[in-house]
Design a protein around this nucleic acid. Sequence first.
RNA 1: GCCGAAGUGGCGGAACUGGUAGACGCGCUGGAUUCAAAAUCCAGUGGCAGCAAUGCCGUGUGGGUUCGAGUCCCACCUUCGGUACCA
Length: 949
Amino acid sequence: MDYQPGKFEAKWKKWWEENQVYKVSNLSDKPKYYVLDMFPYPSGSGLHVGHPLGYIASDIYARYKRMQGFNVLHPMGYDAFGLPAEQYAIQTGVHPAKSTADNINRYREQLDKIGFSFDWSREVQTSDPNYYKWTQWIFLQLFNHWYDNQEDKARPIGDLKVIFEKEGNTKIDAANSQDDSFSAAEWTAMDAKSQNDVLMNYRLAYRKETFVWWCEALGTVLANDEVKDGLSERGGHPVERKPMLQWSLRITAYAQRLLDSLQDVDFSEAMKKMQSNWIGRSEGAQMFFDLEKGDGQIEIFTTRPDTIFGATFMVLAPEHDLVNEITTAEQKKAIADYLAYVNTRSERDRMSETKEVSGEFTGAYAINPFNGTKVPIWIAEYVLKDYGTGAIMAVPADDERDRRFAEKFGLKIIEIIDKSMHPGATIEDKVGKMINSDFMDGMEVVDAIEAILQKMEEKGIGKRQINFKLRDAIYSRQRYWGEPFPIVYDENGVAHALPANELPLKLPELDDFKPASGAQAPLARATDWVNLPNGWTRETDTMPGFAGSSWYFLRYMDADNDDVFANQDALNYWQDVDLYVGGTEHAVGHLMYSRFWHKFLYDKGLVPTKEPYKKLLNQGMIQGVIESMYMLKDKVDGQAKFVCASLIKSGRYQEANTTKIPINIDHVENYGSPDSFMSIDSITKFMEWRPEYKNAIFEFGHGIYHHGKMDNRLYTHSEVGKMSKSKYNVINPDDVVEKYGADTFRMYEMFLGPIDQAKPWDTNGIDGVAKFLRKLWGLFFDASGAFNVNDEAPTKEALKSLHNCIKKVQDDIERFSYNTCVSAFMICVNELRNQKCNNRSILQDLVKLVAPFAPFTGEELWHLLGNEGALAHAEAPVLDESHLVEDSIQYPISINGKKRDLVSFPANASKAELEKMALELESIQRWLEGKTVRKVIVVPKRMINIVVG
RNA sequence: GCCGAAGUGGCGGAACUGGUAGACGCGCUGGAUUCAAAAUCCAGUGGCAGCAAUGCCGUGUGGGUUCGAGUCCCACCUUCGGUACCA
């Protein structure tokens, strides 16, 4: 019988489901193992060939561990809230819940076809009220806690009230955004609203007017990690800095712990680096500069307090609070003009022109606390409101930006470090001898830093401080399709938590999902829902995408629980995720947030581990080949004709031959000459640049691609890039599964290369894997096509082939080297074929060994062999090294490191014997003529090297 | 700029702790089978020279360490990913 996976895949899929083969219990004597995938956002375009890569890798590991005797939790779910569904709703009126459900069904169908061993009874959907009930609940816990820096953990907000009553806020060391200090008496004298306003500045989930990234096109604010290069990560729309009243999460309270425990997790170095850069810890000093006039002070942060004698001016961020106050009458206009200029500039402008310096003098001066010199105070864009204190002391002698600024505006530069002993050293290297620096003169930089810190503390001018780049996470989104905040406001605008028994607070029904007027979220339209009978109102913003994904892995442990987010027995059994598989794109978003939530829950005693993920495996992206756009140089009917190769290649050219498709224009950007080739992306840009081409049409050439030859008027270009709908290079796994079978698809994705490497999808090689599965199948059948295995004792050579394979595959699975596993299988099957092996015990072990990679084929053969239960729960074959023992070993023999012969010697030969035998070889003798043997290196079982001179 | 990863045949990639470079697969070439094609099977396949045995050269570039380097060290080049007026 031929290998026809289509004939049995559906059967086993059904059988697995009916027998709940992959359902896993929280009660087991076996050791636990938790294999998790980053759950997908169910987009409208379905899965492409890149999505399953990680899922296949994790599934192989889950199946492998299961057969090794572990109780394996391997769940799947959907990150179901999100912007695309909402935008689709705005365009079409289809409710996001409906389109999301449709997409989920499609995803499920696609996933099922690939044969994953997910326990679907634990499925979660973040948009399900039974799930987001607990997202809201955890949010309220954050709302009801503050962070005690002394104890280094979160504590209930009630504790803080007690502290304030006793001693005000002057002694407590808490993570906060409270500007003013107050005594116990002042606290007691405050009215309820003022007290609540103060408490808000200590909560781990707090509401405050802050500068946020506002995206006009999306009609919502975005978090730091959702903004890239001044554009929104989703959609690539411009964003601007804007002060708004928003909810935030005080992730900064956990900055140090998030950094420290990176040491305890098994993430790639690159991933750790990315996270620690994002956290951005820097050690330095906080210092105060008195203003020349009045009794105000400017607070600055610097990592180089030693350079203070070179501080010849100061710079404030344009948005700094003091700017207005200190600007002198004669500079008022200049400063106002500069601020106006700053306002006209988009974030993108600001980022793209970092070489261009701009700024303005406030007219005011500050006093250098060490030598009493008067230094002018400027404002400039290059100082950021967000970082440090939004103010710096500028040391033009040793800071690149300060120097550029000083040079442009003719400010004084005082050299303070003699780096003549260290040519090429930069300020980062912290080397050199101090000069012009009073008591520090002659000191090495590192000693100077310590000396000035001490002096500073003595004089009370400043103190040591640690600063982080990490910002608090903006947690409000002006959207419909997200978790509603379980928050209501009283008539004074004070935020109150909904009582737990009112959770989940469900999303109200709407038929218009567009943002309401101003920066109001769509929910503001649901007036019945917003306005409560007692005159209170609900929060109308919703939570961001990372809310639901910050804790979903915990819900899988106990997915149906209505009383708690997951019960303690389940949490204590499953503990944490042993293996987490997903893409690097979540390095600073999801992974940071979920680590933060986990640590908070740990502080509360609600989870047993400090970190959620023990090991992280990043799968590389499967890329598509982006084919160029060809362009005919001449015009037809007054219109330029464009030919898109990717459409031809994707097989849609037939339809395209007869259809003319207008080009979509959504980018505005100049593009070069139309005579050169263009990528499909750039064509849209080009069209905008040259509107006369606006009505040009796609024409799909035929005959061009098939013959591998280009019309000489056409230009071609192809590159590797992201697989995406807009690039017409998406490969649908369904088609591959349809054509070759799920197991071929699975194995081919693994065979493509190392799992963590990005690689372009290339269907060309898939035949090799398909052939392999046919050969494997063929071992079980005779020439007439009848199932035929024998029960005799296996031959020595068959055992050797099998156990070689077991050894290699088990080693390689452990180090996630799946591509080499596949080649080990190929080698084994080729050998068994040559041996004409159809021995039952050999083949049965082989089936068990390939089972994690090829579950459908494995299951079919397993049952053909007469087994009853599910292959997934069979025991993995056990390696017996005794089958691998060799009588003789092939030794490469080298002269001076160059291989000259390859000879087989007995495996048990001693070093001396090997040396003697090697030297006596005729093939070696001829190289030794007239030379002296100086040394012979023998590495038993490896090689022999003869050194002559 | 800074941080990280990677450069190996025509292609995807192997070589785990320094020890036979190119496993396995694709592609290609020749052959078998076939009326023919597909599929299948067999053989070959890093480059150069040679009928061959064999020799020389070969892991981005240049140097070094070593009996021996794709692997270790130094300098550089290229590509990809992250990040960027972070004081």
